[in-house]
Simulated assay, not measured.
Amino acid sequence: MFSVKTLFLAAMATVAYAAPTCQPAFVPTLPKCGGARELPPPPPSLTLKKIAVGHGIQNYTCVDTSSSPKADGAVAILYDVTRFAPGTPKTGLAQALWDKIPSALLLKPLTLKKLAGTKYGADATKPFPKEEDLKLLGFPVAEFLGHHYFDSTSTPMFDLNRVGLKASVIKLDAVDAPANADKGPLKTGAVAWLQLGESGKGLSSGLTQVYRVVTAGGVGLKCDVAGAGVHSVPYTTFYWFF
Rank of each mutant, 00 (worst) to 15 (best):
K183N: 14
L145T: 06
A192I: 00
A124E: 12
P129K: 01
F150L: 06
A192Y: 10
K183T: 15
Y149S: 11
P156K: 10
W193E: 09
W193C: 00
E131I: 01
K183C: 03
E143N: 14
P185C: 07
Y120M: 05
G121C: 14
D159G: 04
H148M: 08
A167N: 05
M157Q: 15
H148E: 09
N161K: 15
L194M: 06
L165V: 07
H147E: 13
A177H: 09
P156G: 04
P129F: 02
P178A: 10
L145G: 06
A179Y: 03
P178K: 09
T188M: 11
D159M: 04
F158K: 04
G146L: 02
T155V: 15
L165R: 08
S154Y: 12
K171R: 14
L145A: 08
P129E: 05
L194G: 03
A122K: 05
M157F: 08
G184V: 02
S154E: 08
V141F: 00
F150D: 11
D182C: 07
A174N: 12
P140A: 09
G117E: 02
S152K: 13
Y149R: 08
I170P: 00
A122E: 00
K126E: 01
A174L: 09
G184M: 03
I170F: 11
D133C: 07
A181R: 09
T118E: 01
L160H: 06
Y149W: 11
G164D: 14
V169H: 06
Q195T: 12
G117K: 06
L172E: 15
R162Q: 13
T153M: 10
F144T: 07
R162M: 11
K187R: 14
L136G: 05
A122G: 02
E132Q: 13
H147M: 11
Q195R: 15
V163D: 14
A142D: 02
G138H: 01
A124C: 02
P156M: 10
F128R: 00
E131W: 00
P127L: 04
V169G: 01
A192M: 03
D123K: 00
P178R: 08
P178N: 09
T155K: 09
V191P: 06
V175G: 03
P156N: 10
N180Y: 10
K171M: 09
N161Q: 13
V175I: 12
L145M: 11
L145D: 03
D133F: 12
M157V: 12
K166G: 10
L172M: 13
K130F: 08
L136W: 05
V169E: 04
